[in-house]
Amino acid sequence: METSNITRRRITEYLLEGKRFDSRKLLEYRNIEIESPVSNKAEGSAFVRIGKTEVAAGVKLGVSEPYTDSEDLGTLVTTVELSPLASERFELGPPKIEAIELARVVDRGIRESGFIDFNKLCIKSGEKVWTVFVDIYPLNDDGNLIDASSLAAVAALQNAVMPKYNEKTERVEFGKWTSKKLPLTEHMPLTLTLHKISRSIILDPCREEEDAQETRVSFAISPKGKDCMINAMQKGNESALTQDEISKMIDTAVEEWKKIYPAIAEKIKKVTAR
């Protein structure tokens, strides 16, 4: 159901006093759980739960022709389907803008961080390269699907192994795997989305909080040596931001990333190990 105006107002008032309905701090995430695999038929897969928000992501590999401007690089295709299974707000049918934007924001975070080593996904330059398909399925929507989907995608990639490729028939032998992992780098991205509600900035909104939001800014950040780099960003929604507000949001995103990243990265690696 749509969140009522009275609930939105109450959320806004509460936040101004530094309070949230579930007694979390403004920049505090709900409990994050990661499981792997979802399906033993996938090259890699993972479940992510952030509070009651639940997302499954899977990686399958295919062989395709490279793009003409990058003849020896593998390719990435990211899709999100907002199935009516996950929320009464979603409908069957071709993807709407919400699903398209979500998939593209997740895609950019992974692509731009350099997490996938596309150089190593070339089979025959100019003719055949591996395509990494990342399919993301929210299973329960209780807000913050951007962060949850990105996390599930990254965990599924971390879990992925290369399927067998038959050099003679030039075909993939699906269902048979090699011992080789999908080539990844140390730049594993983590996406944090800051939501602005009146004068408050919060992380990890639940559904009602997200409905009260005026604007959101997503940051995909990955490690760079001892520091970090911002790889992708997206400002969503109608309300505009002052220079001060955006500067503060950038600082907050980087600070919070530094706090939570090491534990989450370690958890992903542990859970997805084969």
Partner: peptide, 24 residues
């Protein structure tokens, strides 16, 4: 007139400080 940021997207590799400089 109000000088507010109403579109911002990014892809690449940049630090927080450089990003602030870019927005200016």
């Amino acid at each position: 007139r109000s000088n507010k940021l109403c579109l911002l997207q990014l892809d690449g590799k940049i630090s927080g400080e450089e990003l602030k400089e870019a927005i200016k």
